[in-house]
């Protein structure tokens, strides 16, 4: 069982999209609960569209005070629990982080996203001290250009990649038509039609690479050793 939380205190950094594509990929093989803790409820809205994978459940977070119980309930019934947080620096974020086996920090290759990501990493370190355990984390670059990255994008991402104290996913979530389409069509990438979106196969490959990297990191940190007695 593994709890994976997506956190960045800036809105629009790609938390919901990357949480959804990970959840759908994992749900091809495992039971997954996706906790929607964004007050705009984007994943709850998505779940009402057709095509939600059978092994994926979406739970809507009620409040800051209920998040720990919601995570507890989800981890009792699912192999993976994925928490999508709101884009603000809130105590809810800290509570969810404290229960996580891994924190994914999505960010666009922009200065404001980078500053918010650093804020989250600092809060995460305070939470680790509070709960007296190491919580693995990694920065995930999102909405990236496949080719011709801007100088600013290269400047921002290179600073993270050059810093050994800040792990970075080798996989980037690219800017893809298919990812936007998920929220209007419903379901996961594998249920979209190549006739409706551009370059679907590349998006599926990108999502699978990301999910594989998350699973590898979770295994490396022993999150797969937590079993039912």
């Amino acid at each position: 069982m593994a709890v994976v939380t997506f956190a960045n205190s800036k809105g629009g950094s790609g938390k919901t999209t990357s949480a959804l594509i990970l959840a759908c990929e994992l749900a091809e093989h495992a039971s997954v609960c996706l906790i929607d803790a964004d007050p705009r409820r984007p994943l709850t809205t998505w779940a009402k569209l057709p095509g939600k994978p059978e092994r994926l459940t979406v739970v809507t977070n009620a409040s800051e005070k209920t998040i720990l119980d919601e995570i507890d309930a989800a981890r009792a019934d699912n192999q993976f629990v994925i928490v999508d947080l709101e884009g603000t620096a809130s105590r809810l974020t800290s509570y969810a982080i404290s229960q996580s086996d891994m924190v994914v920090i999505p960010m666009k290759e922009q200065q404001q996203d980078a500053l918010a990501a650093i804020d989250v990493i600092q809060e995460l370190k305070r939470d680790m001290k509070a709960v007296r355990r190491t919580i693995p984390f990694a920065v995930l670059f999102t909405q990236t250009k496949v080719v011709a990255k801007s100088r600013t994008a290269r400047f921002v991402s290179n600073q993270f990649k050059a810093n050994d104290a800040t792990p970075v996913f080798a996989t980037e979530i690219h800017e893809r038509d298919a990812y936007s389409a998920l929220f209007s069509v419903g379901g996961g990438l594998r249920r979209l039609s190549g006739r409706d979106v551009n370059n679907l196969e590349a998006a599926i490959r990108n999502a699978a690479d990301f999910a594989a990297e998350v699973v590898t990191m979770l295994r490396a940190n022993g999150a797969n050793q937590k079993r039912v007695a």
């Binding site: 069982m1 593994a2 990929e25 994992l26 091809e28 093989h29 495992a30 039971s31 507890d72 981890r75 009792a76 019934d77 699912n78 192999q79 993976f80 990438l189 594998r190 249920r191 979209l192 039609s193 190549g194 679907l200 196969e201 599926i204 699978a208 999910a211 594989a212 699973v215 979770l218 295994r219 999150a223 797969n224 050793q225 937590k226 079993r227 039912v228 007695a229």
Partner: peptide, 23 residues
Amino acid sequence: TDSARKALDFGGLDDFQPTRPAE
């Protein structure tokens, strides 16, 4: 078709199992 592409199996995910609160 793109959507028929078979999902990767990550070597199976059965090593991840639900955890009950008592543990």
